[in-house]
Amino acid sequence: NQASVVANQLIPINTALTLVMMRSEVVTPVGIPADDIPRLVSMQVNRAVPLGTTLMPDMVKGYP
Protein backbone atom coordinates (compact mmCIF):
# COMPACT_ATOMS: atom_id res chain seq x y z
CA ASN A 1 0.00 0.00 0.00
CA GLN A 2 1.23 3.44 -0.89
CA ALA A 3 1.54 6.09 1.81
CA SER A 4 -0.28 9.38 1.35
CA VAL A 5 0.34 12.87 2.71
CA VAL A 6 -1.67 13.57 5.88
CA ALA A 7 -1.95 16.86 7.79
CA ASN A 8 0.11 16.74 10.99
CA GLN A 9 -1.77 19.77 12.38
CA LEU A 10 -4.55 22.15 11.40
CA ILE A 11 -3.35 23.94 8.26
CA PRO A 12 -5.19 27.26 7.77
CA ILE A 13 -6.38 28.31 4.31
CA ASN A 14 -3.66 29.90 2.11
CA THR A 15 -0.88 28.58 4.36
CA ALA A 16 2.40 27.61 2.67
CA LEU A 17 3.18 24.00 3.53
CA THR A 18 6.27 23.07 5.55
CA LEU A 19 7.69 19.65 6.42
CA VAL A 20 6.40 19.79 10.01
CA MET A 21 2.81 20.19 8.76
CA MET A 22 2.84 16.87 6.89
CA ARG A 23 3.36 13.20 7.62
CA SER A 24 3.03 10.04 5.55
CA GLU A 25 0.43 7.44 6.36
CA VAL A 26 -1.28 4.57 4.55
CA VAL A 27 -4.90 5.74 4.30
CA THR A 28 -8.06 5.14 2.30
CA PRO A 29 -8.86 6.83 0.03
CA VAL A 30 -5.35 7.44 -1.27
CA GLY A 31 -4.34 11.10 -1.49
CA ILE A 32 -1.21 12.86 -2.70
CA PRO A 33 1.65 10.30 -2.63
CA ALA A 34 4.03 10.70 0.32
CA ASP A 35 6.91 10.71 -2.19
CA ASP A 36 5.70 14.16 -3.27
CA ILE A 37 6.22 15.76 0.18
CA PRO A 38 9.44 17.54 -0.94
CA ARG A 39 7.54 19.05 -3.90
CA LEU A 40 4.72 20.25 -1.64
CA VAL A 41 6.95 22.39 0.58
CA SER A 42 6.08 26.08 0.09
CA MET A 43 2.93 25.29 -1.94
CA GLN A 44 -0.27 26.77 -0.47
CA VAL A 45 -3.46 25.00 0.54
CA ASN A 46 -6.66 26.46 -0.87
CA ARG A 47 -8.81 25.49 2.13
CA ALA A 48 -8.40 24.79 5.83
CA VAL A 49 -7.07 21.26 6.32
CA PRO A 50 -7.91 19.72 9.72
CA LEU A 51 -5.44 17.55 11.65
CA GLY A 52 -5.38 14.01 10.30
CA THR A 53 -6.90 14.92 6.94
CA THR A 54 -5.47 13.30 3.82
CA LEU A 55 -4.21 15.93 1.38
CA MET A 56 -5.90 15.57 -2.00
CA PRO A 57 -4.53 17.14 -5.21
CA ASP A 58 -7.37 19.68 -5.37
CA MET A 59 -6.46 21.04 -1.91
CA VAL A 60 -3.02 22.33 -2.96
CA LYS A 61 -2.58 25.30 -5.29
CA GLY A 62 -0.39 24.44 -8.27
CA TYR A 63 -0.31 20.69 -7.65
CA PRO A 64 0.66 18.69 -9.60
Results as ranks from 00 to 15, higher is better:
Thr53Leu: 08
Tyr63Cys: 03
Glu25His: 11
Pro12His: 09
Arg23Met: 05
Ile11Pro: 01
Thr54Arg: 04
Gln44Ile: 12
Ile37Ala: 06
Met21Ile: 03
Val49Ala: 04
Arg47Gly: 05
Arg39Val: 11
Met43Leu: 13
Asn1Ile: 15
Gly52Gln: 03
Gly52Glu: 04
Val45Ile: 06
Tyr63Gln: 05
Ser4Cys: 03
Gln9Lys: 10
Val27Gln: 04
Asp58Arg: 13
Ile32Val: 08
Gln2Val: 15
Ser42Phe: 07
Asn46Ser: 15
Val20Asn: 13
Ala34Glu: 07
Ala48Asp: 14
Leu40Glu: 01
Thr18Asn: 07
Glu25Gln: 13
Val30Cys: 06
Val41Thr: 06
Ile13Phe: 12
Ala7Ser: 11
Val20Ile: 13
Gly52Asn: 15
Met59Trp: 10
Ile11Trp: 00
Asn46Pro: 02
Ala3Arg: 11
Ile13Val: 14
Gln9Ile: 05
Ala7Cys: 04
Ser24Asn: 08
Thr15Cys: 05
Pro57Tyr: 12
Leu10Ala: 12
Arg23Gln: 05
Thr54Trp: 03
Ser42Asp: 15
Leu19Tyr: 09
Ala16Phe: 13
Pro38Asp: 11
Val20Gln: 15
Met43Thr: 05
Thr28Leu: 12
Pro64Glu: 15
Met21Arg: 00
Ile37Asp: 01
Ser4Arg: 01
Val5Met: 01
Glu25Pro: 00
Thr53Pro: 01
Gln44Arg: 14
Leu17Phe: 02
Gln2Pro: 12
Pro38Cys: 04
Leu51Asn: 11
Val27Leu: 05
Leu40Gln: 00
Asp58Trp: 10
Gln2Glu: 08
Tyr63Ile: 06
Thr15Phe: 06
Ile32Gln: 01
Ala7Asn: 01
Leu40Ser: 00
Pro57Glu: 09
Ser42Cys: 06
Ile32Cys: 03
Val60Glu: 01
Arg23Tyr: 06
Asn1Pro: 13
Thr18Lys: 11
Gly52Trp: 04
Ala3Tyr: 09
Ala48Pro: 08
Leu55Asn: 01
Pro57Thr: 06
Gln2Cys: 06
Leu51Val: 10
Leu19Cys: 05
Thr54Leu: 04
Ile37Arg: 07
Ala16Cys: 05
Thr15Val: 09
Ser42Pro: 00
Pro29His: 04
Val27Gly: 03
Ile37Met: 15
Leu10Arg: 11
Leu51Met: 14
Asp58Met: 08
Pro12Glu: 09
Leu17Gln: 00
Ser4Thr: 04
Pro64Val: 12
